[in-house]
């Protein structure tokens, strides 16, 4: 007849390497029998004594793991931070790249807007799951096989992050200025020197030329207005809540008229898309319009949030630290 002890020992041994089993089994059985005997001598009924002893020993698989020093966790503290850092980098780099490539490929293939969004979300999810799974699997194997693992690369002082100083925001000023000049330059360039020309050799602009009466200069001024904001943040040495709200206002002032012009089919010059061989791509229901809308909203929301994140990151730090 199988006893509870037999089942317990079987469960524990099953989780042990073959060559260690006979010795541990002999000792474990002996120890259990000793403990049961002690309880019998104290006057406990046999069945109750066995139950009490085995219950005290606890989960047999846990006991077996203790015997062979096997970790009872997926990732230990030695590798956890490396796992977390690598995962963040992978997700931040690979996900946007894949989504961008998928959207671009579908756009070229002429998939309708809804289909593109669905495909992009589906692929993003599956890529994220794969990234997390395989990274975790590799790290779990490292955890179980590498004998010395004080982190994959030893931590040094060089790995300390930079303090958010005015120096950092000087880079912001330069980036903002370069972006603004390029954006406004491109706006002017597409009017006078487009990639397409009409029969008479005149350039076909991307944006509706009639918009030069007001909207295009308006956008140009808004883009250039980013520069004084960045300069102000650099001069005061911190990005204030007020600057963050001004940033939000700029985004709204830019995005709302731009999307409105886009939806009313007044933003792009129809002739440009005819020359491109894709007439009707500026139609309000075309996938291009959906993608532009999604990307614009994404950038606007992120830029607004980023403004407040900057306030929080740099809040108490003064520029004098440089």
């Amino acid at each position: 007849m199988t006893t509870l002890t037999d089942r317990y020992v079987y469960a524990a041994l099953r989780a042990l390497p073959e060559q260690q089993r006979p010795d541990i089994e002999r000792e474990l059985r002996g120890s259990i029998a000793d403990a049961v005997d002690a309880r019998l001598e104290a006057g406990e009924p046999e069945e109750q004594a066995e139950r009490a002893v085995l219950t005290e020993l606890g989960d047999p698989v846990r006991l077996a793991a203790e015997y062979v020093d096997r970790p009872l966790y997926l990732l230990g503290p030695d590798v956890f931070l490396d796992w977390w850092r690598l995962l963040k980098v992978l997700l931040a780099v690979v996900l946007p790249t894949v989504v961008f490539a998928v959207v671009l490929a579908n756009l070229i293939a002429g998939t309708p807007a809804g289909g593109i969004v669905g495909t992009a979300i589906g692929i993003a999810l599956s890529v994220a799951v794969h990234l997390v799974f395989w990274t975790t699997l590799v790290f779990a194997l490292v955890e179980r096989t590498a004998p010395e693992k004080r982190g994959l690369a030893p931590w040094t002082l060089e790995r300390l992050p930079q303090m958010p100083t005015a120096k950092g925001r000087l880079a912001d000023v330069i980036a903002t200025t370069v972006f603004a000049v390029i954006a406004v330059g491109a706006l002017v360039w597409q009017q006078f020197s487009s990639v397409f020309t009409d029969d008479s050799g005149a350039p076909i602009p991307l944006f509706e030329p009639a918009l030069w009466s007001f909207w295009l200069p308006y956008f140009a001024v808004l883009i250039l207005a980013e520069i004084p904001i960045a300069v102000a943040a650099w001069c005061t040495g911190r990005y204030t809540t007020r600057l963050a709200w001004i940033n939000v206002a700029q985004n709204v002032l830019f995005a709302v008229p731009a999307l409105w012009l886009l939806f009313t089919e007044r933003l792009f010059a129809a002739a440009f898309f005819e020359a491109l061989g894709q007439p009707g791509l500026d139609d309000a229901r075309s996938p291009l319009v959906a993608v532009i809308t999604a990307v614009t909203l994404g950038i606007v929301v992120w830029d607004c949030v980023d403004g407040f994140l900057k306030v929080r990151r740099t809040g108490p730090v003064r520029a004098e630290a440089v």
């Binding site: 002996g30 120890s31 000793d34 403990a35 002690a38 020993l57 606890g58 846990r62 203790e66 015997y67």
Partner: peptide, 26 residues
Amino acid sequence: YGYALLESLDQAGFPVEANTLYPLLR
């Protein structure tokens, strides 16, 4: 041996669980 040591540890004022002691001896 295992169980006797468990008892003497207890008497000596070092109470320890069986499931800690046996793997520790190994």
